[in-house]
């Protein structure tokens, strides 16, 4: 239960970062966690801004193997990566 709440908070925090830094062309509220953020307008530079903002927000650093487009493709993929880093 506690883990679910933490997970929900993380998802919300990720969504806030994407909304602020992703430069999407659609409303974040209209996107599901599995929707492709690049199709929603996130550019490569938007991707980088999101990556840096996530690192600051969660106090983590994405290691080299995670610095790939598919890490940042959806809210769900970002959440998986952030959870993995937070567990380390």
């Amino acid at each position: 239960m506690a883990q679910d709440i933490v997970g929900a908070d993380i998802t919300e925090q990720i969504r806030e970062v994407i909304e602020r830094f992703g430069n999407l062309v659609v409303d974040m509220a209209d996107l599901d966690d599995a929707d492709d953020l690049f199709r929603a307008g996130m550019s490569s530079f938007g991707n980088i801004s999101v990556m840096l903002a996530l690192e600051e927000s969660f106090n983590v650093e994405f290691p080299e193997p995670m610095l790939r487009r598919d890490t940042f493709e959806t809210v769900a993929s970002i959440r998986r990566a952030v959870l993995q880093l937070l567990e380390q």
């Binding site: 490569s44 991707n47 980088i48 990556m51 840096l52 994405f62 080299e64 610095l67 790939r68 487009r69 940042f72």
Partner: peptide, 13 residues
């Protein structure tokens, strides 16, 4: 840099 790794991956994708 690290940001560049994402750009490079995107360019290849």
């Amino acid at each position: 840099g690290r940001a560049g790794a994402i750009l490079a991956d995107g360019q290849r994708q």
